[in-house]
Design a protein around this nucleic acid. Structure first.
Lengths: 217, 217
DNA sequence: ACCTGAACACCGTTCAAGT
DNA sequence: ACCTGAACACCGTTCAAGT
């Protein structure tokens, strides 16, 4: 039973690796990585499951290709600001923004152990800024990696929180009780949802400032 | 065909919720979360799959119960050191150590969006230290959350890297080329594997130091 | 109250066969 | 070179039936 799928379409054009990846990317974007099944993808493409294997290989290879594709689409990061601190912080913000604009990419990349790969483009930009800030050699490398871990880690935790189901006890009920003792303002603050953007900025500024301040030593 | 599984055992004692969780925890510890299948677990328990449903519910409920169990087992964290900086850093290190000692817990907790839950015990300890350092109200809350995101994020990235398959281009080949231009020491440093422990300490000290230095303002 | 097997609706992957 | 259906070995979950 050929082409029993939804709606009238033209005759199925010859399948291509690119068409498979395009459709797969669409599925992931709309419904998340776990919704990408070989059989579902085949149905969407109006073809046999096994054709996908011919064009892109199995599911693992498909996911790898998707990650590669999306990472390549991210575009380069241009530092902004006058001082090295400002420029590095701007790179960190831009990277976070990119990752947040491709929410499923983060999940995909994390699932596949590819956070490294995701960061490589920004790494080169950061190296340049580290040099501009007067850091050299191993100290520059430490700086770049500290920023890298900070940014990627923050985004991972953010994404995790957004996905989080109701939790017991959660911060709200924990801190709405008497736990905080003599600091009701603290209890209120911890019971409120996190302002991730602000927290990110605070942390990155603190980290970058501290690491650049020790430079020259 | 009752009890066709491996080796001679005594007659199957009445199944209990606790026994199910215990065996499930063992499976996760030995082979990771993805190896925990309802059917595999049933085989290990030498019982019918459906019995598991009666005792703990479906796979989701089982994973939730496992997380809860493991988090409860972590034990409390005791700050060490004389200055507030030292004590906060010691809490961060202890938390990282705990998480690294339960590698599958991190994956489990991340997969289920429960990083929050994982951090709650340490949060209360940190609040006390923030107070000792002179932080109050919203500023104390920001501090606690910045440290929290830093630690959990770092561990997530670490775990991710350890799982990572070979990547192309990876840092090593990227930086062993001429990319680094005039800084061969930097290139060598970035081509080396990350010393996660050292990087963690550097970052946490920088962050905590910077955030506590701005106190009182 | 506790446990069972059968059945349902899915997966990813392989393979021999078609054109 | 490209595409196919059938088959294999898995999943999680539901349900009616047993004791």
């Amino acid at each position: 039973m050929p082409r029993a799928s939804s709606g009238p379409r033209g005759p199925r054009a010859a399948l291509s690796r690119d068409e498979v990846l395009e459709t797969a990317a669409g599925l992931v974007k709309r419904h998340g990585p776990q919704a990408l099944t070989m059989r579902g993808l085949a149905a969407e493409l109006d073809t046999a499951v096994t054709s996908i294997y011919w064009h892109v290989g199995g599911r693992e290879a498909l996911l790898d290709a998707l990650v590669e594709r999306t990472v390549a689409d991210l575009g380069e990061i241009r530092p902004e600001g006058r001082t090295p601190e400002q420029r590095v912080v701007s790179v960190a913000r831009a990277l976070r923004r990119q990752l947040r604009d491709h929410p499923h990419l983060v999940a995909l990349v994390h699932e596949r152990g590819l956070t490294e790969r995701m960061f490589l483009p920004a790494q080169q930009v950061l190296v340049r800024e580290a040099h501009a800030a007067g850091l050299r050699g191993a100290r520059a490398a430490d700086f770049v990696r500290a920023v890298q871990f900070q940014v990627v880690g923050h985004v991972l935790v953010e994404r995790n929180r957004e996905r989080a189901p109701a939790q017991h006890p959660d911060e709200e009920e924990l801190w709405s009780a008497e736990t905080a003792g003599a600091d009701p303002a603290l209890a209120r603050a911890l019971a409120r949802p996190v302002d991730a953007e602000r927290l990110f900025l605070t942390s990155v500024r603190a980290l970058v400032g501290a690491l650049l301040a020790s430079r020259g030593h």
